[in-house]
Simulated scan of single mutants.
Amino acid sequence: MRIAVIGAGALGGTFATLLTRAGHEVTVTARGAGLAAIRADGIRLRGGFGEAHARPAVLERLVERPELTLVCTKAQDAEAAIGENAVMINGSPVIVVQNGLDGVQTAKRLLPHSECFGALSIIAANYTEPGQVTVTTAAPTYLGRGDGPIDQETRRWQRVLNEAVPTRAIENFIGAQWTKLIVNMLNALPAITGLSVQQVIAHPGLRRVMTASMREAVRVGAGRNVRFGALQSLSNRSLRVFARLPLWAGQILPLRMRRRMGAVPNRGSTLQSITRGQRTEIDFLNGAIVREATAAGLPAPINTLLTALVHEVERSGAFLTPAAVLTRADVLLHAE
């Protein structure tokens, strides 16, 4: 099958390599150093899915119509990337593999003749350098669309992706996007401090802030009448119980997440963007919680602070110490 992968970073590189290994004819889009590296030596994948070396076709933008397209850019780059390739992909199925809440809707708006699906990937991967990806946590990808039951087209594309990477079709995809957004609350503090996710969770003070951001996110989702989807042992019921727990008890959630990560440092996608000097997708993660809170008439002070601190690090290029973060956050935590 002719499959296009738009974006050749950590997830795009992982999907492109594994789909090539499964026998598909893959084309990726890339720019700059990534384009040059893939043209010269393909993509080398290491870690949780084993070692693989793929040489997909690589272009700045697509020139032929694929049978399936995966959009694997960062959330903030999706609109431009889809728009640049719309002539070729409008009318063929598209799967948006992305964090945040907006990706599928953006694709549907720009590609009115395409069937658009969403994929939530729990894979943790480090884009160590152009053309080089290391998978630190091999995990399933969840595929779906809308807030209803699984349809036949979703099952069809699940079978295609599952040939390359473990993929599950899920109902209530919109609710699952919210659940993944809660999981993505892991990203901000590593980007602010330069620490791995495991190190942040091991730090008692930072763990309290992370727990508070997750709890606040669940409360905002509930205020927006979201029915959270089942994902990574989380469910609508368990998240609503978590939102009612005192802060000390709620820390069990990030601690459980840490146990599933293993020992290999998980740097998180937002920290990886910081270290590469790129704009992060924080406005589509913690920033999305702030926007949804505003729409619901609810406060979101912790996520407002974390969004601002990530932008501060983006501008300055200097990480903050845990003590500096806690000085800013403690007043908000004590106000609860």
Results as ranks from 00 to 15, higher is better:
3 I>A: 02
4 A>H: 11
7 G>C: 07
10 A>W: 08
17 T>E: 03
18 L>V: 06
21 R>I: 02
22 A>C: 10
40 A>L: 05
42 G>S: 11
45 L>A: 09
52 A>G: 09
56 P>L: 08
58 V>Y: 05
64 E>T: 14
69 T>V: 11
70 L>P: 02
73 T>F: 02
74 K>R: 13
75 A>I: 02
76 Q>V: 11
81 A>M: 12
82 I>R: 06
97 V>T: 07
105 Q>M: 09
113 H>C: 11
113 H>D: 15
119 A>G: 12
125 A>I: 04
126 N>P: 00
130 P>I: 02
136 T>L: 05
136 T>I: 07
142 Y>D: 03
147 D>F: 06
152 Q>T: 15
153 E>Q: 15
154 T>C: 15
157 W>K: 12
161 L>R: 06
168 R>L: 13
177 Q>Y: 01
183 V>K: 10
184 N>S: 14
191 A>Y: 01
192 I>M: 03
193 T>Y: 00
201 I>T: 07
204 P>F: 04
206 L>Y: 09
212 A>R: 13
216 E>L: 04
220 V>A: 12
220 V>K: 11
222 A>I: 15
222 A>H: 10
223 G>M: 07
228 F>H: 09
237 R>C: 00
241 V>D: 10
245 L>F: 06
247 L>F: 07
250 G>H: 06
253 L>K: 02
258 R>W: 00
265 P>E: 12
267 R>D: 01
268 G>T: 07
274 I>R: 03
275 T>H: 03
276 R>M: 12
279 R>S: 09
282 I>K: 08
290 V>K: 13
301 P>I: 10
302 I>C: 05
309 L>G: 04
316 S>D: 11
319 F>E: 02
321 T>R: 15
321 T>E: 14
323 A>V: 01
